[in-house]
Amino acid sequence: MPTDDITASAAGTWTLGDRTVNRMGFGSMRITANPDRELAIRVLRRAVELGVNHIDTAAFYRSPGGTLDVGTGPVRYATDLIRQALAPYPDDLVIATKVGPGDDPSTGFYEATTAAQLRHQVEENLRRLDRDHLDVVNLRVMKRSGRDSLAERFGALAQLREAGLIRHLGLSNVHLEHLDEAQAIAPVVGVQNSYAIDINRTDDELVRICAQRGVAFVPFFAIAGAQREAGATHDHDEAILAVAAAHSATPHQIRLAWSLHQGPHVLAIPGTGNPDHLAENIAAGALRLSADELARLG
C-alpha cells in the first residue's frame, strides 16, 4: 500500500490521562541496535514529522548489552537518542517510560523492589531525557509468571506522582489482579503487555476489561510475535497472507492493523531503526479490516 502521505493520525486518537495521542506510536528499543547514531536520530525525527506523538522507551534500552545486546561500538541508550533527536520536545509529545527492571553495567539486570530504587530509576529517566517530569511511567513486572503484590512498588510511584515527578502511571507485563490492585491506589492510564495476533491471546479478556475501564492497552511485540526481541517475525499463517494480499499490504502491516482493531483504546508502538519500515508501520494505521477479515484472522 502507498505510504508517502499517511501519518499517525490515520489510526485515530486516544487520551492518556489528560494527554491526547495518536494511536499509532513508536517503540524506541530497536533504535539502539544500529551503531549509526545519526540514522537513529533521523528515524526519531521522521517519526515525529509523520505525526507520532507517543513514544515508548526505558532507561534500560541500550546496545551493546542491555535488552537487545546487538551491534558494536559505544553503548547507545534509547533515552539519550530521544533527547538528542527531539529536545526541546514538541508540546504534544508524550514519552512513556518504564521502571522496575534496572540495568547496572557492572552487575547486570536487577528488579527494583524498594521506593529508593524506584526513585533512582525515575531520576535516571529524568536525567537521560532532560525532563523535569515524566509524562507516563509504567511499572514493569519482570516475570509475567509472577503474581506477587505490586502495591508497595506502585504506591511508591504514586508518591512520586504526587510530588510532581510523574504525570501519569501505568503497568507493564501484568495480570488483571495487578490492575485491580493498582487502581485501588492511583489512576492507571495504560497497561502494556506482550500481545499479538498469535501470542498471549489469554490477554483477550484483559484487553476487554481495559476498554470497559477507559484504560489504554498498549501491546508490544505486535509485529515480532514469538520472535520477541529478535525482531519482526516472518512466520505468517495463510489468513494473514491472504488479508495482506487483499489490501496490497505487508503481513506486518496486517498484524498492526489487527492490533488496532481490538478496540479504540489499543495503542500501537511498533519500533524500527529503518526509515522505510517506519513509514510502512505508520501507514498500517490507515488500514480498515472488515468483520469477515477479522473473523478470519482470529
Rank of each mutant, 00 (worst) to 15 (best):
H247G: 05
I82A: 08
G273L: 02
E111A: 15
N125S: 15
A112M: 12
T233W: 13
R201D: 01
T272C: 02
T57Y: 03
N34P: 03
L150E: 11
A284T: 14
L278T: 03
I95C: 00
V21L: 09
D237W: 01
I269P: 07
T72E: 11
V43C: 04
I282P: 05
N22I: 06
D5A: 11
G164S: 04
T3Y: 09
A226E: 03
R296K: 13
A230F: 15
V215N: 01
H261P: 09
A47N: 06
R119T: 13
T250R: 03
R37P: 04
D237M: 04
L50N: 10
F26N: 06
A286R: 14
L241D: 15
G285S: 01
A112E: 09
N34I: 11
S248T: 15
F109W: 05
I282Y: 06
F220T: 07
Q84R: 10
L241K: 15
N138Y: 02
H178D: 02
A245K: 12
Q84V: 08
L81K: 10
H236Y: 15
V94W: 11
R30P: 08
D180S: 13
E205I: 02
V94R: 03
Q262L: 13
P264M: 00
D204Y: 02
G71C: 01
L139R: 12
D56F: 05
G190P: 06
A283S: 08
V48L: 06
S290H: 12
R127I: 12
R37E: 07
L44S: 03
D18F: 10
K143Q: 15
T20K: 14
F26P: 10
R147L: 13
A186F: 07
P74I: 05
V266S: 07
T97D: 11
L241Y: 00
G170K: 08
V218E: 02
N125H: 09
L44I: 04
H236K: 15
E111F: 12
A47W: 10
H120V: 00
A33G: 09
T7S: 07
F60Q: 08
T113H: 15
Q227W: 08
R161V: 08
F109G: 00
F217Q: 12
R144L: 15
S28T: 04
N22E: 05
A87E: 10
W258T: 12
N193P: 14
V218P: 06
G146H: 12
D148T: 15
L297C: 04
I185T: 01
L297A: 01
P251S: 09
L93K: 07
R131T: 04
R46S: 14
N138L: 15
D204A: 09
A291W: 05
P219E: 08
D69I: 11
R208E: 05
A291L: 09
G298W: 11
R201S: 04
V137A: 02
T57L: 01
A226I: 06
R42V: 07
H277F: 13
A211S: 07
A226G: 12
L157I: 07
H265N: 09
V122H: 07
F60Y: 03
